[in-house]
């Protein structure tokens, strides 16, 4: 009877893990399947930190299970020392091992937070593409100031080109996330945050808001297309053929709350729309754009 129980106890988890593995294998595990340099480095960091953690996790499990079996009260042969309550060596190890691991991880943390700072421009031979992003109720507006076009819920970027996103919000706080290209950054009214990313593989990747912003929050997704330079140019051409233009008047129409908004393009985007949006919420007399940009 006991053997059967142990057998089941071992077999059952193996079956579950096996089924889970078979199910997950064909799926797109976004964070572990990066398509750009930034996301790739973030993934490597995740794996490295997980690996380091094993040095605590494995001893904890091993000691716990060994002691639980060996010092079970049914095992009367095991040594029993009820007054054993201190040992310099063990306590030094208890403080020491976690401390060493944490020091190691701290160095990694310090370096990586500087190297993977979302504000840090990406060095590349290709010139940087600037995009202004506005989180709205409940859609994303992308303005391409270099081309004076705009789109809703669609971000198209050329391959191997660094992209600088300047992000604000005309709504509650949101948080932008394109897991296969880069991590998340908050969007806040009256503030400009930045995110630098790059796409190194062609494809269409999901982006979404990750911070609750009201009833249409779950539908606040957008497509990020990493395309060849040619396709990027044809996207610009297509956008310019649109019959919609973006100025402050049409923006005010757009900014009315709406949910699950389909993709649309604007043939012309007036340069003052973005500054209009964050200036709506500027409050202090002595703050100007540069200081509100955070660095």
């Amino acid at each position: 009877m006991k053997r059967i129980r142990i057998f089941i106890a071992i077999l059952f988890p193996i079956i579950i893990i096996g089924v889970a593995y078979l199910y997950l294998k064909p799926l797109n595990i976004a964070v572990l399947n990066p398509k750009g340099e930034i996301a790739l480095r973030e993934k490597n960091l995740l794996l490295f930190a997980s690996f380091l953690s094993l040095f605590v996790l494995v001893p904890v499990y091993a000691l716990l299970i060994t002691f639980a079996i060996k010092y079970n009260e049914k095992n009367t042969k095991a040594k029993y020392s009820p007054n054993f309550d201190r040992s310099r060596t063990i306590e030094a190890l208890c403080w020491g091992i976690p401390a060493i691991l944490i020091i190691l991880l701290s160095i990694v943390t310090w370096q990586s937070s500087h190297e993977l700072d979302p504000y840090k421009p990406i060095t590349s031979n290709n010139p940087t593409l600037n995009v202004e992003v506005v989180a709205m109720d409940w859609k994303w507006l992308f303005i391409y100031p270099d081309y004076q076009i705009a789109s809703v819920n669609n971000l198209t970027i050329p391959i191997n080109t660094p992209v600088n996103l300047k992000i604000t919000s005309d709504a509650p706080m949101n948080q932008i996330w394109i897991p296969q290209l880069a991590g998340q950054v908050m969007t806040m009214p009256g503030m400009i945050t930045q995110l630098n990313l790059i796409g190194n593989t062609k494809g269409s990747y999901l982006g979404r808001s990750t911070n609750i912003s009201g009833s249409g929050f779950a539908g606040m997704t957008f497509k990020t297309n990493v395309v060849s330079d040619q396709d990027f140019n044809s996207m610009i051409a297509m956008s310019r053929s649109s019959n919609k233009i973006l100025n402050i008047a049409s923006y005010q129409q757009l900014s009315k709350p709406s949910e699950n908004v389909p993709i649309s393009y604007y043939s012309y985007a007036s340069a003052d729309v973005f500054s209009y949006i964050y200036n709506k919420y500027m409050s202090s007399s002595n703050v100007n754009i540069s200081s509100s940009m955070g660095n």
């Binding site: 964070v31 960091l45 930190a49 990586s112 937070s113 993977l116 998340q184």
Partner: peptide, 13 residues
């Protein structure tokens, strides 16, 4: 893991 800021960028929220 979440305490490493770049990892947190991916997993926050």
């Amino acid at each position: 893991l979440l305490a490493v800021p770049p990892v947190d960028f991916q997993l926050n929220n």
